[in-house]
Simulated assay, not measured.
Amino acid sequence: MGPSKRHRDILRLLEQDGTVAIAELARKLNVSLETVRRDIRPLAGNGSVVKMHGAVSLPSIVGEAPFEKRMRENSEAKKAIAAAVARTIRDGDSIMMDTGTTTSFLARELLGHRRLTVVTNSSDVARTLATVNDNRVYMAGGELRSDNGAAFGTTAIDFVGRFTVTHAVISTGAVNADGMMDYDLEEAEFARMVLTRGQRALVVTDHSKFGRQGLVKVAGFDAVTELATDKAPPSDIAEALRTAGAELLLA
């Protein structure tokens, strides 16, 4: 396979999966890490891709893409993570979720559960689980954002702060050795509050978020009890999890 063919394949994979780790590109293209790095240089040079620490992305999705597009990115991985987490939740449990594509997939996986108490700022999560199976759903108030239909701000944070739940679940835009990060201040502040409200504090994220550098820190690994993902994280993240005493749930 020549460089030009690999260039096309790299762009195709990025369009399909969003941000992709360089090691994952090498595996999918069946070439060495050095070959992938060499192929990425001209693509980065002409602005076709953006290089990040250990990963590469299309310029249009640096930061976060619109919610609907993010739902399509790595959807099979997110579904697998959601299914694995849903198996750890019992009928009658209470669960708090922030807005995010993986938490939206989790809400869909919970449609087989009964008598759940759900607290969320996501209209998608609330709409999915309300009025079915004797669930009780509490939706945080505030102005709903047009891109993801979620409420943020002090009103939403104060509302969820009144609850204590069995499972507090957040998704996140970036994970590195320092912990979880996001690209929006209000989303990070809301997620930080959610983590404090559960007997179990769980982060759900697919492997493409590993190694990303977000804009705002949500929390360190000492604020969570578990991280659920689809692939083993890089060694620095795995070590940080162990040091913090957080468990890893692999889908």
Rank of each mutant, 00 (worst) to 15 (best):
P3L: 06
K5P: 05
R6S: 08
R6H: 09
R6N: 09
H7F: 05
D9Q: 08
D9N: 12
L11Q: 08
L11D: 08
E15F: 12
Q16E: 13
D17K: 07
G18E: 06
T19S: 09
V20E: 09
A21D: 13
E24M: 12
A26G: 14
L29P: 12
L29F: 11
N30I: 13
V31A: 12
V31G: 10
S32P: 15
R38A: 15
L43M: 13
L43C: 10
L43E: 14
A44V: 05
A44Q: 04
N46L: 12
N46H: 13
S48N: 09
V49T: 11
H53R: 15
A55L: 04
S57I: 15
L58D: 14
P59D: 10
S60Q: 12
I61D: 14
V62E: 04
G63A: 11
A65C: 13
E68N: 10
M71F: 12
M71H: 15
A77F: 07
A77V: 07
K78V: 13
K78S: 11
I81P: 08
A84M: 12
A86R: 04
I89A: 09
D93I: 10
I95Q: 07
T99A: 04
T99S: 03
T101C: 14
T101Y: 15
S104C: 08
F105I: 13
L106W: 03
L106D: 03
L110N: 10
L110D: 06
H113A: 09
R114E: 07
L116I: 12
T117Y: 01
V118N: 05
N121C: 03
S122F: 02
V125S: 00
T128K: 02
T128Q: 04
T128Y: 04
L129Y: 05
A130L: 10
V137W: 05
M139D: 02
A140K: 00
R145H: 01
S146A: 03
S146T: 01
N148R: 01
T154A: 08
T154P: 04
F159I: 01
R162Y: 00
F163I: 03
T164W: 02
V165I: 01
T166S: 01
H167N: 02
V169Q: 02
I170P: 00
A174G: 07
N176V: 06
G179V: 03
M180D: 07
M181T: 07
Y183L: 05
E187N: 06
A191S: 05
R192G: 00
R192W: 01
M193L: 02
T196E: 03
T196S: 05
R197G: 02
G198D: 00
G198L: 01
R200G: 04
S208D: 09
K209M: 11
F210G: 01
R212L: 12
R212E: 10
R212F: 11
Q213V: 14
V216S: 00
K217A: 08
F221K: 07
D222P: 09
A223M: 11
T225H: 10
E226W: 09
T229I: 06
K231T: 01
K231Q: 01
P233L: 14
P234Q: 15
P234R: 10
A238I: 10
E239A: 14
L241D: 07
A244Y: 06
A244M: 06
G245W: 12
G245R: 15
A246N: 07
L248F: 09
L248A: 10
L250V: 05
